[in-house]
Simulated assay, not measured.
Amino acid sequence: MAKLHFSAAACVAALLGLAACNKPAEQAKAPEAPAAAIPAPPPAASTPTTYACDDGASVKASYPDADTAVVELDGKAHTLKIAVSASGARYVGDGLQWWTKGMTDGQLSPLKAGEDIASAPGVNCKAPESATPAG
């Protein structure tokens, strides 16, 4: 009798499994909702931050949008665009590379003709702790 009970249970389970696979055509072919676009994060700091560099220079940097840094050096503004980096945020353009780690540390390097990543070591720059947003 137990053998018969097991066979009936196995048959019911198999039928339920088949019923789950047999969806109406409308349900099986329902279009998936498009993935929601992830908005770009807001810029880390839209007001300028002044960095003191190891060579005595000062660099003023602002970030008008998530893909742009405006770096002012020796009274001249340079607009740089975001570039691939393993860590931090790296911006390049106008013969310069500005690479930041958080909001306090930056490194400004010259780009030689044809370079996408600066080969020169550049100069380290630091923003005062008071310039960083509280978090």
Rank of each mutant, 00 (worst) to 15 (best):
residue 9 A to L: 12
residue 105 D to P: 01
residue 133 P to T: 07
residue 38 I to N: 09
residue 69 A to D: 02
residue 15 L to V: 14
residue 125 C to I: 07
residue 84 V to I: 15
residue 77 A to Y: 07
residue 40 A to L: 12
residue 132 T to S: 15
residue 25 A to E: 15
residue 54 D to V: 07
residue 72 E to T: 15
residue 112 K to P: 01
residue 50 T to W: 04
residue 40 A to T: 00
residue 33 A to C: 05
residue 26 E to N: 14
residue 70 V to K: 06
residue 106 G to V: 00
residue 29 K to V: 04
residue 86 A to T: 10
residue 84 V to H: 13
residue 65 D to I: 10
residue 50 T to Q: 14
residue 85 S to H: 09
residue 79 T to I: 10
residue 104 T to N: 12
residue 131 A to C: 03
residue 70 V to N: 03
residue 44 A to E: 11
residue 34 P to S: 08
residue 124 N to A: 11
residue 66 A to V: 05
residue 80 L to K: 00
residue 46 S to M: 15
residue 121 P to R: 11
residue 64 P to N: 07
residue 91 Y to D: 01
residue 14 A to G: 14
residue 125 C to H: 03
residue 68 T to N: 08
residue 87 S to G: 10
residue 69 A to V: 12
residue 43 P to Y: 02
residue 56 G to R: 04
residue 57 A to Y: 10
residue 37 A to K: 11
residue 129 E to W: 00
residue 106 G to K: 01
residue 135 G to K: 13
residue 72 E to D: 08
residue 27 Q to R: 14
residue 8 A to L: 09
residue 133 P to W: 06
residue 36 A to M: 09
residue 60 K to S: 14
residue 88 G to W: 04
residue 131 A to W: 00
residue 2 A to L: 14
residue 36 A to W: 02
residue 103 M to C: 13
residue 53 C to Q: 06
residue 38 I to C: 03
residue 4 L to G: 06
residue 54 D to L: 05
residue 7 S to Q: 10
residue 44 A to P: 07
residue 19 A to Q: 03
residue 88 G to R: 02
residue 33 A to R: 10
residue 69 A to C: 10
residue 9 A to W: 02
residue 105 D to G: 11
residue 33 A to H: 05
residue 132 T to Y: 07
residue 8 A to P: 00
residue 89 A to Y: 03
residue 129 E to Y: 00
residue 23 K to M: 09
residue 60 K to C: 01
residue 11 C to R: 12
residue 69 A to T: 03
residue 93 G to C: 05
residue 38 I to W: 00
residue 45 A to T: 09
residue 19 A to G: 06
residue 118 A to N: 00
residue 79 T to V: 13
residue 43 P to I: 08
residue 76 K to W: 05
residue 69 A to H: 00
residue 38 I to Q: 08
residue 51 Y to R: 08
residue 54 D to G: 06
residue 110 P to L: 08
residue 50 T to V: 15
residue 99 W to S: 02
residue 123 V to D: 04
residue 36 A to H: 07
residue 78 H to P: 01
residue 61 A to I: 12
residue 81 K to C: 05
residue 31 P to C: 07
residue 106 G to M: 02
residue 95 G to C: 12
residue 56 G to V: 03
residue 30 A to P: 01
residue 17 G to F: 11
residue 107 Q to C: 05
residue 38 I to A: 12
residue 89 A to D: 08
residue 121 P to L: 08
residue 108 L to Q: 01
residue 114 G to K: 10
residue 112 K to A: 14
residue 105 D to F: 13
residue 78 H to V: 08
residue 132 T to P: 05
residue 116 D to F: 06
residue 71 V to K: 00
residue 131 A to M: 04
residue 88 G to L: 06
residue 67 D to T: 12
residue 29 K to S: 13
residue 115 E to D: 07
residue 39 P to T: 08
residue 4 L to A: 15
residue 23 K to Y: 10
residue 75 G to Q: 04
residue 13 A to Y: 01
residue 130 S to C: 02
residue 129 E to R: 06
residue 132 T to N: 11
residue 46 S to H: 11
residue 114 G to N: 09
residue 81 K to S: 11
residue 46 S to A: 14
residue 48 P to K: 08
residue 66 A to F: 13
residue 121 P to I: 09
residue 44 A to H: 04
residue 14 A to L: 15
residue 44 A to C: 02
residue 123 V to N: 03
residue 13 A to I: 13
residue 6 F to M: 10
residue 32 E to N: 13
residue 73 L to E: 08
residue 35 A to F: 09
residue 69 A to I: 06
residue 56 G to I: 01
residue 82 I to M: 05
residue 2 A to V: 12
residue 98 W to K: 01
residue 30 A to G: 07
residue 18 L to K: 03
residue 18 L to R: 04
residue 8 A to Y: 08
